[in-house]
Write a protein that binds this DNA or RNA. Structure first.
Lengths: 340, 340
DNA sequence: CCTTCTACCGAAAACGTTTGCTGTTAATAT
DNA sequence: ATATTAACAGCAAACGTTTTCGGTAGAAGG
């Protein structure tokens, strides 16, 4: 049951390991005859080069590491899919890990990946993370790193993000243009950059249309959850009975909003329009179907891999590596929680 | 920027590589003095053993391969999460791959994983796969393999599955006990074993309660999709205007059913009760909230890893390895599409 | 003073490849 | 005939570890 090696082939054929290796790799300094017999035998014995030996020799494993905050999450699992598909296309495999939004876990896992000596690392920073020495370390060791989705200005490396500001702007713009005058925003945690960007987009849209911005109309949902939506729309309705539009940080929050509005017999979109964010599976299944923003998750994964491979190849060829920043466009999905 | 090796430490300290290695690994035949200085220096230089060299030496990579039909799928991404978590707990990392239900891709990816020399493989067989020589090959090479979710009798290895029959039985049983007399089943593709098992559970429940089984009341949804649900409930309502219960292969199909019932002003659950299957994210967000069956996806992943680790360890210790078959229990989730 | 131990250290082989260099043979050119 | 070259083969080192086996020194014992 032993794995067949170059040595085995060499022994059987009564030649040296060197020659076998060269024959297999198509070196020109081996005769056509021996080359053929080596090829044949290798084929018959089903010889497969030992990946471990190759890794050691080449100092690379054709493997990349991937850390996301949460694997079983619609957005991230689509990113993962994109990453894996694009990596595979280029002869790389992916080791996936989940930080659970924990800074400690993130650090530990980056260590693990480096210890494993992956050829490069793809990372969406955990919400909890606020300092970035661990990322500096990676760059210092010259391990290719690209950040996606959750990124930071602080670190100088390639990044791929969603244009959250623009997306949020589009969402709120649609709300206003369909007639909304008083729009509340159920925003995400203060720490999260995405949440901040979307909030900014909300502001910009209000400003553009000359609507006043009232900080009292922004509510903080730190859980991105359905119950967050339920809770805050209740408060919002009490504080602003005349609100006619809701822009939420996430489809799940919007789902909660929709539930409460339905329970309170508030007509959607006639009395109140609702815009979600993410285009998760749930959005098309809600009733009424939720208008939302589609994020190109799979494409983001693919893009991140391509950026990473650029760095990996650049490094191998000892070329000066340059970093890129890609912003992916989102798509406005009009369904039935907004007026035409 | 070179990685620091045992050799580096040895040179600096003016001792041999052997001694350094032994000092680090706590061998007793190295003096306390040298041990300490080695430890110190290793710490200072931030020495990390070269994983590639270790792999080659130990003939193992502490890495397992995982193939699922689809990564960006609620059920599977939860399995992946379980797999990764449990693997990490035991010092293993996971290379994830997606077969897209294609037999060709499945074969290719198994090859890739073997070439990478993963320590073991976790596989959910693709729908398309009907012959199993490629799996036999793996067993022949004595590479630990465990099948999960989509399995086959043909192959003799450890397996972990959901008890679909029992789950479906429970679902239909609930329907009947809450008063349903005429229950249609929107089933999955004929090829899929899960679909067959759930159909069987449906039959058993009918039989147990003395209800007649009418093949005309079973409809084939080959896409597991919302539109499948919409389409087939329409037909079902036409063919059986007096139906009072629906059991679907999947929550998404149920979502379609719910939509059409709502559009046709059919009261749920008063006139018609609906049972889904999977407990996907959408189920709690539908209105009314969908009663369904919860599948312990994460636990399935963990279980599969544990089974695999057993085989890996057994193999290393050259013990006779025995295979296990685990059936995970599901949980009935009563929400608002069934009467109390 | 010689033997036997103990405590410590290191040489070398091994894991499976790749590749620069050396060597051998035979063919060609002078 | 000798010198040069071409065509082929293999040695050995290297990648970074681990581990078996000997070896050396000093201490203890006779």
């Amino acid at each position: 049951m032993k794995e067949v090696t170059l040595k085995d082939i060499a022994q059987i054929l009564g030649i040296s390991v060197t020659t076998v290796s060269k024959a297999l790799k198509g070196y020109k300094d081996v005769s056509e005859d021996t080359r053929r017999s080596v090829m044949m035998l290798a084929e018959n014995l089903n010889y497969k080069p030992n990946a471990f030996a190759l890794n050691l020799k080449n100092k690379e494993s054709k493997t990349i590491g991937l850390i996301v905050p949460e694997i079983a999450h619609h957005f991230f699992s689509n990113i993962i899919q994109g990453v894996i598909a694009e990596a595979e296309k280029n002869g790389y495999m992916v080791i996936a890990l989940q930080s659970s939004e924990s800074n400690y876990v993130e650090k530990k896992q980056l260590e693990m990946l480096m210890d494993k000596r992956v050829d490069g690392i793809l990372l969406a920073i955990a919400d909890e993370t606020e300092t970035y020495e661990h990322l500096e370390d990676i760059l210092k060791k010259e391990i290719p790193l690209v950040l996606f989705d959750k990124v930071t200005e602080t670190i100088n490396c390639s990044k791929v993000t969603i244009d959250d500001k623009k997306a949020a702007f589009q969402a709120v713009d649609l709300l206003i243009r369909s007639g909304c005058k008083k729009i509340v925003h159920l925003r995400g945690p203060l720490g999260a950059p995405n949440a901040a960007d979307r909030h900014e987009g909300y502001l910009t849209a209000l400003k553009k249309h000359g609507l006043v911005y009232d900080p009292k109309m922004v509510y903080l949902c730190d859980g991105y959850s359905v119950s967050d939506g339920r809770k805050h729309i209740d408060i919002a309705l009490k504080e602003h009975p005349d609100l006619d539009g809701v822009f939420t940080i996430t489809d799940h929050v919007a789902a909660g909003v929709l539930q409460r509005l339905h329970e309170k017999k508030v007509k959607v979109p006639e009395s109140v329009s609702v815009m979600g964010f993410s285009n998760s599976v749930i959005s098309s299944v809600l009733s009424p179907a939720l208008s939302t923003i589609d994020q190109p998750a799979t494409q983001m994964g693919r893009e991140a891999v391509n950026l990473l491979l650029k760095e990996i190849n650049g490094r191998r060829e000892k070329k000066k590596i340059e970093h890129f920043q890609v912003q992916l466009p989102t798509k406005l999905i009009k369904r039935n929680t907004t007026k035409p």
